[in-house]
Amino acid sequence: MPPRTRRSDALSRDRIVEAAVELLDTAGEAGLTFRTLTERLATGAGAIYWHVANKGELLDAATDGVIAAALAAGSPGSPREEIRAVALGLFDAIERHPWLGTQLALQLARTPWGSVTARIFEGIGRQVRALGVPAGHLFTTTSALVSYIFGAAGQNAANTAGVPAGADRAEFLDAVSTAWEELDPDEYPFTRAVAAEVRGHDDREQFLAGLDLVLAGITAVHLSRAK
């Protein structure tokens, strides 16, 4: 048998959070228990409780860790480029971790003073201020961006989860498009008109296009006020 990992290494808080994220990704929130966590880490529950008091704290720590990694996806560039990079990092994180959207919504509403909310607003708000948005409008503008990012990313994750297991995405979208095209033309003229655009669309490109619309609006409003 290979030598056992030293207890101090195996039971660091970071390792516990990493294992929790792995369990959440594969089994969802219901599958994350201290029993499953002790089995994965090959240790006793008491040792884990030394680092994490309860499941709520564990979920908070897992969310914070994933968000911290996602926000690090930004790259040096203009404020607009930085916002796009951060937003796409968050979009990809929510898509990769199906549990994340729910936890973000809970933490933003339940503990807005927590580290997750602060990380998000700091990561995006700095760039909003760098765009030239004046004081007095920073919170509202940053909130609008955060709402778009999580709303669109969460809806995309829900759409992805809604595709039947084993189904081909292109075939699924084609079925949606066909159903829209067959709607009553008098009652649904717009939906029928855009039905063809559903086929083969790229979710990430659509997300970024929407983000660009929001950023264009922010720039237009605040640059016009500055003149």
Rank of each mutant, 00 (worst) to 15 (best):
V146F: 04
S115Y: 09
G101P: 10
L59G: 12
G217C: 03
G65I: 00
E22A: 14
L213M: 10
G200C: 12
V198S: 02
A161I: 10
L183M: 05
D203N: 08
V128I: 10
T160Q: 15
S224L: 13
L215K: 01
A20E: 11
G28F: 13
E182N: 08
Q155F: 10
D25M: 05
A10P: 02
T43G: 07
A45T: 15
V194C: 05
G162Y: 06
L106W: 13
A216S: 13
P3S: 15
E187R: 12
R40Q: 14
D9W: 14
R96L: 09
G123F: 06
R169E: 14
V21G: 06
G44P: 01
R35E: 14
A167V: 11
T111W: 14
F91A: 04
L41W: 09
G101A: 14
A109T: 13
R15T: 13
A85W: 05
H51E: 10
A226P: 00
K55Q: 07
R40T: 14
T160K: 15
A216P: 02
L211C: 02
K227S: 09
L145H: 01
F121S: 07
G31W: 13
T191F: 02
R40F: 14
S12P: 14
R204D: 05
P185T: 09
R4C: 08
P185R: 03
T102C: 12
A167H: 15
E182V: 01
D25R: 11
T142F: 08
V163H: 03
D60L: 12
V66F: 12
K227N: 12
I67P: 01
G217I: 03
R40D: 12
S8Y: 11
Q206C: 10
V146G: 00
T111G: 04
M1G: 15
A179D: 00
G114P: 08
S78V: 00
Q127G: 00
L71D: 04
G77V: 08
V176G: 00
P164L: 02
I16W: 02
T36W: 04
G154E: 07
G31Y: 15
A175F: 07
V128A: 00
E29D: 12
G125P: 09
P79H: 10
D60T: 10
S8W: 11
T142S: 08
A170I: 05
R199C: 03
R35D: 13
E181I: 00
T141L: 02
L37R: 01
A216K: 05
P164A: 00
P2I: 10
W180K: 02
W99E: 11
I218V: 15
G217D: 05
E187V: 10
S115N: 15
S12M: 14
L138G: 02
E122S: 11
A161V: 13
F91L: 07
S177K: 04
L173C: 05
F150N: 01
I83V: 15
E181C: 00
R13W: 11
G123N: 05
S177N: 06
D168L: 06
S147E: 10
H51L: 03
E29Y: 11
L90V: 11
A216H: 08
H97L: 06
A20Y: 07
